[in-house]
Design a protein around this nucleic acid. Structure first.
Length: 575
RNA sequence: GCUCUUGUAGUUCAGUGGAUAGAACAAGGGACUCCUAAGCCCUAGACGCAGGUUCGAUUCCUGCCAAGGGCACCA
């Protein structure tokens, strides 16, 4: 149990003992005062008013002398309706720092989700289409949730579900054949290094052209039929280009360092899905209405879900139902999470209701996030108002290299590239994660290209600074027999308290599925550290003090590294 | 029309049924012969509107206003 959790439990026990009640006050009732002047932790007495028939202020005053203290909780003080407790900072510092330096990368992890198997689906891209910054938000959120849930003890199976079989593929193939035929096989100077990216550009062209060319619609329909028949030249071309997109996704995943245990494709589930729909229709679970096959969910207030078009062709739920069932049957999961943007909230309510009616009792969760907008308005393939992942990454990487070159004239290319990659990745991910999921991101490219303020680079820089100190110190110090009473500055106490809170942040982030909790925490920690850094010296302090400060800042570095790790961001040694 | 989400400083965002509503950027000012200035310190600036519940509401409820999403053959 993390030290702060133990302290809270002790305080709750002591308060209950003083009141001669059992479990009246819980560890979770304790809060952190807004100002350290008040104390280190606090019990608001409002909730006790009814049970004790006294005012909150009276309760505080009544309790203040009656709490049994110990070596860490050394004083109590009633301020109005709050009962405040003060810690022995030396003991706390020792407890927290030793815990961090001993647990290392394990500091902050817990086992809440022990023996629970969770499948999480995200980065559901479309082949033959552009991968834009909306997808980037999805994949960063999904990856962070995966890592946060693992830190909370769950067994995670991250998967991606690629839609390779929709009308969008036919549109792209039509434009490819109509305008880019001569580039078959495509030359590198046309496609760039990434043919999937090239297809994305073609898709945008297709949308543009189809807007003004009515006859083309029929041609696209024909191509779609040919793909569905799974034979002929169109199908062959579909197979070939599908691979380009899939390779493109793999490249993106690799660049971002994001791994999936399994990638599903719509084309692999559609046939089984059609069989399933046939069976369900025979059982009258699905019905015919206005020519289409639907699930009538009106009595659950969920309207109707259209499963097959009037012409008998499949809509999205067909493959999705089939896949959902495979997830439960084959992978034996306890919980199925879908990370998909908020526009599909109703869709998932309907899908889950159908699965529930089919007797699947496992927990199903749609983690919705809002979309990404540009200052000029919604991103749209049709109008070409899109920032693709590839374009953004290129810009961020360039800017990152530029900043490095400004500061480190003597670095070689390899080193610059290595560090620039980490800074660029951090920047992309942090921008997507630092905003709560129910807020639309109005994506400002200039903000993404900044490396100061509330950014990943600030956190990486903080870590690099600590690294720089410790690298210089290593030779001179052994870390045995640290005297923690040398950490007597108030800024040190604040830093230690912040470090102690990290395990509960990991817990809350997991419970709330909220990586921005981690981002915010790390930023506050880094701010406290940087303030401290400017107020004292580490290396030039007297030996005993230097040793104590050194272990403190090493603990800060460890927590920064752990927390950034949960967001999929790497620290850099030097920048 | 029904329904979901959002409305906090010039901008982009945090936050809480209670102790002084926090940051970042932008603006203005400052420190540095000191471990990385991608840093630090200081100043100025905000809870859409109206009711209700409460000892207490920016937070909960209702209504209104504003922005955006979803609602039968898109994914």
């Amino acid at each position: 149990m993390p030290i702060l959790e133990k302290i809270k439990q002790n305080i709750a026990d002591a308060v209950n003992a003083a009141l001669k009640k059992k479990d009246l006050v819980k560890a979770a009732d304790l809060v952190y005062p807004p100002n350290p002047m008040f104390g280190d932790i606090s019990l608001p007495c409002f909730d006790l008013v009814r049970k004790l028939k006294k005012t909150a202020t009276e309760i505080g005053e009544f309790l203040v002398g009656k709490i049994e203290l110990n070596d860490i909780v050394v004083a109590t003080k009633a301020i109005g309706p709050f009962l405040n407790f003060t810690f022995n900072k030396t003991k706390l510092a020792q407890g927290v720092i030793e815990e961090i330096l001993k647990s290392k990368s394990k500091y902050g992890v817990n086992s809440i989700g022990k023996n629970k198997k969770v499948m999480i689906e995200f980065s559901n891209g479309n082949t033959h289409k552009e991968y834009h910054i909306g997808h980037l938000r999805n994949i960063c959120y999904g990856d962070a949730i995966t890592k946060i849930l693992i830190a909370n003890g769950y067994k995670l199976i991250p998967v991606s579900y690629i839609n390779d079989f929709g009308i969008h593929a036919a549109k792209t193939l039509w434009a490819y054949q109509t305008f880019y035929k001569k580039y078959n096989p495509p030359a590198r100077h046309v496609t760039g290094k990434n043919k999937g990216y090239f297809l994305g550009k073609i898709y945008m062209r297709a949308c543009e052209e189809l807007g003004k060319n009515k006859e083309a619609k029929a041609a696209v329909g024909l191509i779609m039929k040919n793909i569905e028949s799974r034979q002929g030249v169109d199908y062959k071309l579909w197979q070939k280009t599908r691979k380009w997109s899939i390779d493109g996704f793999a490249k993106i995943h690799k660049e971002l360092g994001i791994k999936f245990d399994k990638i599903f494709y719509e084309s692999e589930f559609i046939d089984h899905g059609m069989e399933l729909v046939g069976q369900l229709f025979k059982k009258h679970f699905l019905i015919k209405s206005e020519g289409a096959i639907i699930a009538d969910l009106q009595k659950y207030d969920l309207g109707v879900m259209i499963i097959l078009r009037s012409d008998g062709t499949a809509l999205y739920p067909v493959a999705d139902l089939s896949l959902a069932i495979e997830k439960f049957k084959k992978y034996k999961i306890n919980k199925s999470i879908y990370i998909v943007d908020a526009r599909q909230s109703l869709y998932f309510k309907q899908l889950f209701k159908i699965l529930e009616l089919l007797d699947f009792k496992q927990e199903m969760k749609h983690l919705s996030h809002e979309f990404v907008k540009l200052p000029e308005g919604m991103m749209s393939s049709r109008t070409g108002n899109v920032i693709t992942y590839e374009d953004l990454r290129k810009q961020v990487l360039e800017k990152s290299k530029l900043e490095i070159k400004k500061r480190h004239k003597n670095w070689n290319k390899k080193k610059i590239n290595l560090v620039a990659e980490k800074i660029a990745n951090g920047s992309l991910k942090f921008e997507m994660i630092k905003v709560s999921e129910d807020k639309v991101i109005i994506f400002d490219i200039n903000q993404a290209l900044r490396f100061d303020g509330y950014t990943a680079a600030y956190l990486q820089y903080t870590s690099a600074r600590i690294n720089s100190i410790s690298a210089k110190a290593q030779k001179q110090d052994n870390k045995k027999a640290i005297d923690f009473s040398n950490l007597d500055k108030s800024k040190e106490g604040e830093l230690v308290k912040k470090l102690a809170k990290y395990p509960e942040i990991v817990k809350t982030a997991g419970e709330k599925y909220d990586p921005s909790e981690i981002a915010k925490y790390l930023f506050e920690l880094a701010q406290k550290f940087n303030d401290y850094y400017h107020s004292v010296q580490v290396l030039k302090a007297k030996k005993e003090i230097r040793q104590a400060r050194l272990v403190l800042i090493m603990a800060v570095k460890q927590v920064l590294e752990n927390g950034l790790g949960l967001l999929g961001i790497e620290v850099v040694e030097e920048m």
